[in-house]
């Protein structure tokens, strides 16, 4: 399966989603931004193409939360990042644990750290933190809003170079 063939297969279901990414700079060949409605459809395609699930995590980009999925292939060097943006005050996204059972724990961990509700997850409860914990430690403070803008601008630019501090 070639890069273009996969890109086309995804573009037929999600025309706007796919973007090339520079492997040397970001560690990914393909950068996919998907809405939470079409996430399951996309993951089903990746499952058919033989990708394995690397991990599921999230980044708090106030006022949204970016849910990040990493996929990769065994047969050849090919890595994919899938991003889904969900509102911070209503963090819900469908589960993919019925397609990739390995996502079960990853999603529970993300729920633990960010409070994201994975809809239809078989058993969404805390994984690493105590059962009675009433906080989600990786959510950022609203005062970090300016720093978030820098992260966003980085996504647009892509690539990272060194800048020397003091």
């Amino acid at each position: 399966m070639s890069h273009d063939a996969l890109k086309q297969a995804i573009q037929t279901i999600l025309p706007e989603a796919v973007k090339d990414s520079s492997y040397n700079e970001t560690g990914h060949h393909l950068d996919i931004t998907v809405s939470s409605e079409s996430l399951v459809q996309l993951v089903e395609v990746l499952d058919q193409k033989g990708f394995y699930l690397v991990d599921v995590t999230a980044v708090d980009l106030i006022p949204e939360i970016e849910v990040v999925y990493h996929f990769a292939l065994w047969q050849k060097l090919y890595r994919i990042i899938v991003r889904a943006y969900i509102p911070r005050n209503h963090p819900e996204i469908p589960t993919i644990s019925h397609i990739y059972p390995g996502a079960d724990w990853h999603e529970r961990e993300t729920f633990d750290f960010f409070g994201i509700k994975f809809l239809n997850h078989p058993e969404l409860k805390r994984l690493l933190l105590p059962e009675d914990a009433d906080f989600h430690p990786l959510l950022k403070k609203e005062s970090l809003l300016e720093k978030v803008e820098a992260v966003r601008s980085g996504f647009r630019k892509g690539g990272c170079r060194i800048t020397y501090g003091d």
Binding site: V68, S153, F155, R161, I162, T163
Partner: peptide, 29 residues
């Protein structure tokens, strides 16, 4: 002190147990 430019990167290595990867998001600080 190292400051990275804003952006994200994933880098995996083979540890004794398998794929250990770090996904780092930087905001330039």
């Amino acid at each position: 002190f190292i400051e990275l430019e804003p952006g994200d990167c994933y880098f995996p290595v083979e540890s004794a147990r398998g794929e250990f990867g770090i996904y780092l998001v930087s905001n330039g600080e």
